Simulated scan of single mutants.
Amino acid sequence: MIRKLTEQDHDQVLAFLSEEPSINLFIIGDIEVFGYSSEFQEIWAEFDEQNNSIKAVLLRFHQSFIPYAKGEFDTEGFVSIMKRYNQPVLLSGKSDIVEKFEAFDDLQLGKKQATFFAECLTDEYLNIIDQSIAINKATIEEVDQIIEIRESIEEFVIRDDARELLVQAMESNTARTYYTEDHGVITSCVSTTAENSMSAMIVGVCTRKEYRRQGLATTIMQKLFQDVLDEGKTLCLFYDNPAAGRIYKRLGFKDIGMWTMYR
């Protein structure tokens, strides 16, 4: 049985999701901030009819969907929900879960991208922060510059609503960006997203080409990582570049699985 969740289901669904807080940080964060009655967010769950326990969850946030399950689940039932909205479907999640949806020819999925998923639980690998590099925390005033520098990175895919989502995330305290600048121009930045009471995702690590190889991004990451870990949260990130993976692992990250996105 699949039904839409309400505030009355909160404790049960959080208990289900919190067994893998890193994998579920997007769903947990969105539930904590936006709840169950926002126009842009809905959450459904499949229940075991025998004991009314949750088997799987599906989140819609704007035009994106994230499913999560611990075993077999009603994939066809979730497909029928996603088909009510615009296609192609923007889908992401743990690879062994979301790849089940590829079997449905009538579900139009976007371009597939698989990445490594890593988490960090300790600050023991962080170095002393270079105090000669001034690091700032971004406000709404810096949003346009943050989007502009991200758009300059060839590997990044920037959504049409990226500015709107970043502003919303900043205002809801589910994201923060640290950056360096040179005469008022942002030269390098690192952001979090989907911050919640348990975890935070690192995204948007970027440096303008003319400022690279100066250690700016690494220094910003160390400052951001330390601040988030000091708050008792787990750090998570995606990577598909082996060189980047080596940098993250030197800072204490460990691979915990694969994450697949269809965009």
Rank of each mutant, 00 (worst) to 15 (best):
Phe73Asn: 00
Ala56Asn: 08
Val157Ser: 13
Tyr68Val: 14
Glu142Trp: 04
Glu155Asn: 03
Ile54Trp: 12
Leu126Met: 08
Gln131Gly: 05
Leu121Phe: 12
Ser152Ile: 08
Thr122Glu: 15
Trp44Arg: 04
Leu126Lys: 06
Gly71Cys: 13
Phe117Pro: 00
Phe104Val: 05
Phe73Met: 01
Glu76His: 05
Phe47Asn: 14
Thr139Tyr: 04
Glu151Ile: 09
Asn51Phe: 02
Ile149Tyr: 07
Val57Tyr: 04
Asp96Val: 13
Gln113Ile: 13
Thr139Arg: 00
Ser53Val: 11
Gly93Leu: 03
Ala103Leu: 09
Ile54Asn: 08
Ile81Ala: 12
Ala45Leu: 06
Gln41Thr: 14
Lys100Thr: 12
Val57Glu: 08
Tyr36Ser: 11
Ala56Phe: 15
Glu155Phe: 05
Ser64Tyr: 04
Asp123Pro: 07
Ile153His: 06
Phe101Arg: 00
Lys137Glu: 10
Glu46Tyr: 15
Ile97Tyr: 05
Leu59Val: 03
Trp44Thr: 00
Thr139Val: 01
Ile54Pro: 12
Glu42Ala: 15
Pro88Tyr: 05
Phe40Leu: 11
Asp123Ala: 11
Ile54Leu: 13
Asp105Trp: 02
Phe61Met: 10
Arg60Thr: 03
Glu49Lys: 05
Ser152His: 10
Glu148Cys: 13
Phe78Lys: 01
Lys94Met: 11
Glu155Cys: 02
Ala56His: 12
Val33Lys: 15
Asp96Ser: 13
Val157Gln: 07
Ala114Ser: 15
Lys111Gln: 14
Lys70Gly: 04
Glu102Pro: 06
Asp160Gly: 08
Ala118Cys: 06
Val98Gln: 04
Ile147Val: 15
Glu148His: 14
Ile66Phe: 13
Ser92Met: 14
Asp160Met: 04
Ile135Met: 07
Ile43Ser: 06
Leu126Thr: 06
Phe47Cys: 13
Ser152Lys: 13
Lys70Trp: 10
Ala118Lys: 02
Leu91Asn: 06
Ala103Trp: 02
Arg150Pro: 00
Asp106Met: 05
Lys112Cys: 02
Tyr36Cys: 13
Ala134Ser: 14
Gln108Asn: 02
His62Ala: 11
Arg150Gln: 09
Asp160Ala: 03
Ser95Pro: 03
Asn52Lys: 12
Gly77Met: 10
Cys120Ile: 05
Lys55Glu: 09
Glu102Gly: 01
Phe78His: 06
Phe104Asn: 01
Arg150His: 06
Val98Pro: 05
Glu154Phe: 07
Asp161Glu: 01
Trp44Ala: 00
Phe104Ala: 00
Ala138Met: 01
Ile146Ser: 02
Ala103Lys: 14
Asp74Leu: 07
Ser92Leu: 14
Leu109Met: 02
Val89Thr: 04
Asn136Phe: 15
Glu99Val: 05
Gln108His: 05
Arg84Met: 14
Ile43His: 14
Pro67Leu: 12
Ser95Asp: 13
Ser37Pro: 00
Gly110Pro: 02
Ser132Ile: 03
